[in-house]
Design a protein around this nucleic acid. Structure first.
Lengths: 135, 135
DNA sequence: CTTATCACTTGCAAAAGGCAAGTGACAAAA
DNA sequence: TTTTGTCACTTGCCTTTTGCAAGTGATAAG
């Protein structure tokens, strides 16, 4: 995570949020991590078909911005798994509201997995907390 | 509002939402309308400094997608005001969650106006409902 | 008659997105 | 041992979008 002095276009909290996740792909990656995906190929396999160079750049940016961390799960060659930080997991309420909005206003859209609306950001941290605790 | 058959990259409601508002500017325009702005020059005056060609294209897209409507407020030359539809106003909970997220995780960000968190989507329709009722 | 405003449009360069192919380390199969 | 495959990327190339500046046409103001 890099810690450059941020230079936001304004101090408006909405505007700042959009500088973090205001594009068509970042929240797709966050969604996949909420669903328990953690590996590069898992993200690639999602039905939206994210281009591989975009995926690599989004993972890099999200890590630089502290929304996720990567952890090597094998050496030779080193391979990483990606996990949400608390900052990233706290986007869950945003995802929940976006899904509600689409379900209300867009016919024929799909359904989120069971338990999606009742999930809490903390639930999303289980995996890597466990992993680092028992490592 | 155009009614082409939509061809979404997936049926995931989150993904679909991002095809509507997944960029750095659309929600800025929605925010401004939530704050009571309605004219082109009002949107231009916002501190983020949206480029004029982007503003024109976003207003067009948001209207095509049914998130706002435009209404002429003068003829010769015809000039439009823009108002949220119920579909657009229902993005308020999304904005509220995004603002909460930034306030929790980004130091030195600004504050939303008073009453922002307690506002309801219906409140945002007052202006143009009144206007059309009394026209 | 000049200047200004409002709501745009147009032109152009730079950045981002998207597709395909390549790469390097390793594992498994033939 | 050679070939094939996988995983996590990177690179190249072309298209689309963005961002800045300038222009436009109708009208009002000085």
């Amino acid at each position: 995570m890099k810690t450059e002095t941020p230079n936001y276009r304004s101090k408006c909290p909405l505007s700042i949020a959009l500088e973090f996740i205001g594009d068509k792909w970042s929240l797709i990656v966050i969604r996949d991590m909420c669903l328990g995906k953690s590996k590069y190929c898992d993200f690639q396999a999602s039905p939206e078909g994210i281009p591989t160079n975009i995926l690599a750049s989004r993972l890099r940016e999200l890590e630089e911005n502290g929304l996720l961390i990567k952890r090597p799960y094998q050496a030779k060659p080193v391979r990483y798994e990606y996990f949400l930080t608390p900052k990233g997991a706290d986007l869950l309420p945003v995802l929940q509201q976006l899904v509600k909005w689409t379900q209300k206003h867009v016919p024929d859209c799909g359904e989120p997995p069971e338990g999606f609306f009742t999930a809490q950001p903390e639930d999303l941290l289980q995996k890597w907390v466990d992993a680092t605790d028992t490592a």
